[in-house]
Computed example of a mutant assay.
Amino acid sequence: MADEDEVNVTDLVDGLDFLGSDDTPSITNNYQENAGSDGSIFTTASINKNIFNANFSLHFSDWYDLKLAKHDIYRLFIQKKLMRLRSDAEPAKVSFARATPFDIKPFQDGAHDATFSIPFENPSGYKFSLLRSDSLYTRDEAGWQRGMNLPNGEDLIYRHTVPQFKIFNASDIPIDPYYQRHDLKIIVKFKGNSLQLVNKTNGTSWKYNKSSNGSDLIVLDGINTTLNGTPASANTDYGNLILEKGWNDIVATGATTVDITFSFPFIYIG
């Protein structure tokens, strides 16, 4: 499950081998039609739920062995909750998906082998980095791979104690916690009468209007603010920050000292 320890399914079922997976992103473009006018006017686009197939082979000794293996496989994959899935082809990217119905049967009568595919529904339509940004900056070997849009030779730092700094969004898309409900947590401690964060790259901002002595833990989780775990959006201007792809220039004003962490998964299309 998405909130449980990760397991290697081929270690749990004797004779099961993973053969790879295939997936295709899904996008819907919307247009406005104007009577009497040629063509259509583009309005919006959205990434949709997609389906990807995980392919397996299964070797078994007899019919009874097959029945036991099928039970173990169905028990693992036919679940109501989202499962966090990743493969050795993309070890630093994960999908959150649910299995749909699938069958397992020998490739011919009397055979001791079967090949089958499990179709998974991915409701977000995205893949995500295995680790969040504030873990990735340590360059943990398990959290990095080619194809993640990460710059070469540059340190990626997501915790800052100075009023001006840069945040790198390695995603394929902007991180938008309001309109797209993307996961973005900004964890703050500050000393001063107030604190405003402005992303100079796109003009988005958030302001905490109350004073803090530097020990309070203030978290902007998407569009909701908490103070030491208690709802505190009323203490803000109800703003939020959007992170553009690549580098974002962030400025903090109104405080004498700051300790600011940006925590989010990178988002990938396919």
Rank of each mutant, 00 (worst) to 15 (best):
residue 96 F to I: 14
residue 87 S to W: 02
residue 137 Y to P: 04
residue 129 S to T: 11
residue 86 R to D: 02
residue 108 Q to M: 12
residue 85 L to Y: 04
residue 69 A to S: 07
residue 89 A to N: 11
residue 126 Y to S: 05
residue 148 M to T: 08
residue 81 K to W: 09
residue 132 R to D: 09
residue 82 L to P: 02
residue 96 F to W: 14
residue 88 D to E: 13
residue 139 R to H: 07
residue 71 H to K: 13
residue 61 S to G: 12
residue 147 G to P: 03
residue 103 D to M: 10
residue 128 F to L: 14
residue 119 P to A: 13
residue 117 S to G: 09
residue 111 A to W: 14
residue 120 F to M: 05
residue 123 P to Q: 10
residue 136 L to C: 03
residue 92 A to F: 07
residue 150 L to E: 01
residue 140 D to P: 03
residue 135 S to V: 04
residue 139 R to A: 02
residue 85 L to H: 13
residue 102 F to L: 06
residue 149 N to K: 00
residue 138 T to W: 02
residue 137 Y to R: 01
residue 61 S to A: 15
residue 107 F to D: 14
residue 90 E to M: 10
residue 88 D to S: 12
residue 145 Q to K: 00
residue 122 N to S: 06
residue 81 K to H: 11
residue 104 I to V: 11
residue 63 W to E: 14
residue 140 D to S: 06
residue 115 T to A: 03
residue 108 Q to E: 14
residue 107 F to G: 00
residue 83 M to E: 04
residue 71 H to Q: 13
residue 127 K to S: 12
residue 89 A to P: 00
residue 145 Q to G: 10
residue 127 K to M: 14
residue 118 I to R: 08
residue 139 R to I: 09
residue 134 D to S: 10
residue 84 R to L: 15
residue 89 A to V: 05
residue 129 S to W: 03
residue 115 T to M: 13
residue 95 S to H: 04
residue 62 D to W: 06
residue 119 P to K: 07
residue 101 P to H: 03
residue 121 E to R: 13
residue 143 G to T: 00
residue 69 A to N: 03
residue 77 F to V: 04
residue 93 K to I: 09
residue 120 F to V: 03
residue 72 D to N: 14
residue 104 I to C: 04
residue 80 K to Y: 14
residue 75 R to T: 15
residue 100 T to S: 15
residue 118 I to P: 08
residue 108 Q to P: 01
residue 126 Y to V: 08
residue 85 L to F: 07
residue 100 T to L: 10
residue 62 D to Q: 12
residue 127 K to Y: 06
residue 73 I to W: 09
residue 99 A to L: 05
residue 111 A to Y: 15
residue 118 I to N: 04
residue 75 R to N: 14
residue 123 P to N: 06
residue 95 S to F: 04
residue 104 I to M: 06
residue 150 L to H: 00
residue 115 T to Y: 08
residue 82 L to E: 09
residue 80 K to N: 15
residue 100 T to E: 12
residue 144 W to M: 09
residue 138 T to D: 01
residue 61 S to Q: 14
residue 101 P to E: 03
residue 99 A to G: 05
residue 66 L to C: 07
residue 133 S to K: 01
residue 61 S to I: 12
residue 114 A to G: 01
residue 127 K to D: 08
residue 150 L to G: 00
residue 114 A to W: 13
residue 103 D to K: 07
residue 69 A to Y: 05
residue 79 Q to K: 13
residue 112 H to M: 12
residue 118 I to V: 13
residue 145 Q to L: 00
residue 67 K to A: 15
residue 140 D to Y: 02
residue 102 F to M: 04
residue 81 K to I: 09
residue 78 I to V: 15
residue 92 A to C: 07
residue 105 K to Y: 15
residue 64 Y to R: 15
residue 144 W to H: 10
residue 101 P to R: 07
residue 144 W to R: 05
residue 127 K to C: 11
residue 125 G to K: 04
residue 103 D to T: 09
residue 86 R to C: 03
residue 105 K to N: 11
residue 134 D to R: 06
residue 137 Y to V: 00
residue 95 S to C: 00
residue 107 F to T: 04
residue 109 D to C: 03
residue 73 I to N: 09
residue 67 K to E: 15
residue 144 W to V: 11
residue 71 H to G: 11
residue 84 R to F: 11
residue 65 D to W: 07
residue 98 R to C: 07
residue 71 H to C: 12
residue 133 S to Q: 03
residue 130 L to T: 07
residue 141 E to W: 01
residue 83 M to V: 07
residue 113 D to M: 08
residue 128 F to M: 09
residue 97 A to L: 12
residue 131 L to Y: 12
residue 105 K to P: 02
residue 134 D to W: 05
residue 99 A to C: 09
